[in-house]
């Protein structure tokens, strides 16, 4: 089964590139990703550019509306994701808990739907 781990944190207080904190975080992410690959659960995973770069689209009655910004303003923003191949939720939660952002942000784990046929 595939699970997506959505990584949320407050961009305003995230470690800034160039800081020691940021360098340490990158190191932790590298180690976590290696562990996911080593255990054979890694399907994909990427960080996202800042929420300031988001563009949201809505088409209604044939009119396409293009909006600068994310779909909703929230306290924590989606900043990246992993997709894991796991047997069950316990395994997925075990790996999601290894994502470094769990220590200051939130990780939402959701099963990816399988479309049969």
């Amino acid at each position: 089964m595939k699970y997506i781990a959505l990584i949320y944190s407050n961009e305003a207080t995230d470690p800034v590139p160039g800081s020691d904190e940021f360098t340490r975080l990158i190191g932790e992410y590298r180690a976590a990703t290696e562990k996911f690959i080593e255990d054979g659960v890694m399907v994909a995973g990427d960080p996202l550019e800042s929420v300031n770069t988001a563009t949201t689209l809505r088409a209604r009655n044939g009119n396409l509306d293009t909006i600068d910004g994310p779909f909703a303003e929230t306290k924590e923003q989606l900043g990246g994701y992993y997709i894991f191949e796991c047997d069950n939720l316990d395994d997925a939660l075990k790996y999601a808990a290894m994502i470094p952002t769990v220590n200051y942000g939130s990780i939402e784990v959701r099963p990816i739907m399988t479309i049969e046929g």
Partner: peptide, 14 residues
Amino acid sequence: KQAAIPFVVPDKSI
């Protein structure tokens, strides 16, 4: 069912 919560006795670590 959908999130596949397992039907197991959790292992020692949890």
